[in-house]
Design a protein around this nucleic acid. Structure first.
Lengths: 141, 141
DNA sequence: ATACAATAGTTAGCATCCCTAATAACGAGT
DNA sequence: ACTCGTTATTAGGGATGCTAACTATTGTAT
């Protein structure tokens, strides 16, 4: 594909991501957990326990920002924060069972809403989109 | 496609959107305009001048929130805010030439970065993704 | 061993962003 | 004129994000 075609595609992707983002933001109120906390919690669940710096890097935010997000998670019983025995400067942050449960609930709700939209598509469109998503995941990795 | 397949696709889409969102957020610092302001400015440019309520609805935020975003845009010379002559309760918000220029710059940079990633894909993948994006736009409309 | 530098987190302070509730200004109907 | 609805702004509270400054711990060099 030529540059113009690639650019048109990039444009469409950008617009679609913005729309998905808005849907996710509007969902935020339902779960009782803000988007940044939910996202950090997801990183903890999928990546296992990790240090603050690792979590901050994974989420693309500065350490102080993550420190406060974790503070909120701990206060709400969704994560634990304990000193690393080997290196007492480090903290080991991990999701609690409650955190895992709440995360699953929130994700389920968002995914379900999205799934309902996808269900309305024709079968050939669904397959085309599935293929596109596969490619997109590779492209963004 | 069955429910499980649709759900897997929704999951992938969700993850990809989160990644795109993060890329966009990290770009924010380059333009000197925050994401909400950039987004509101884009709505003004594409939709022409509009009232505060219309802009707030278009962006999916409450009126007071949009009032402050517009305040920032006006302060930075990116938009104008003037009373509607026909109904003096309303304000007519519009992008300035400078606003249009800055928006274009920011969007170009983001789109360009995305385009470079897409360029690395095989041609068949590019076509598959283009088709997927078309479908996605229809699904989200 | 002591001094100094590097690393890991937290605190402090500032600028948004987002909301609801209350307020101000205007327009329309009685 | 009075009242009610509409439109936008102000007030106030909670989060998120940053950089700079601080504490605590660990590593290194003399």
């Amino acid at each position: 594909m030529n540059d113009d075609q690639l650019e048109a595609m990039a444009n469409g992707l950008h617009a679609a991501a913005a729309r998905l983002l808005r849907m996710a933001r509007n969902d935020r109120g339902q779960s009782g957990i803000s988007a940044p906390r939910l996202s950090a919690l997801a990183a903890l669940v999928s990546g296992g326990g990790m240090s603050l710096a690792a979590l901050a890097a994974a989420e693309g935010v500065a350490a102080p920002t993550m420190s406060r997000i974790v503070e909120g998670l701990v206060k709400d019983g969704l994560a634990t924060r304990e000193a690393d025995p080997a290196n007492r400067r480090k903290v080991r942050i991990a999701a609690t069972d409650e955190g895992r449960r709440r995360l699953q609930e929130g994700r389920d709700r968002r995914i379900r809403a999205l799934r309902e939209r996808l269900r309305r598509l024709a079968d050939s469109e669904q397959r085309a989109l599935a293929r596109g998503v596969e490619v997109l995941e590779r492209a963004l990795r």
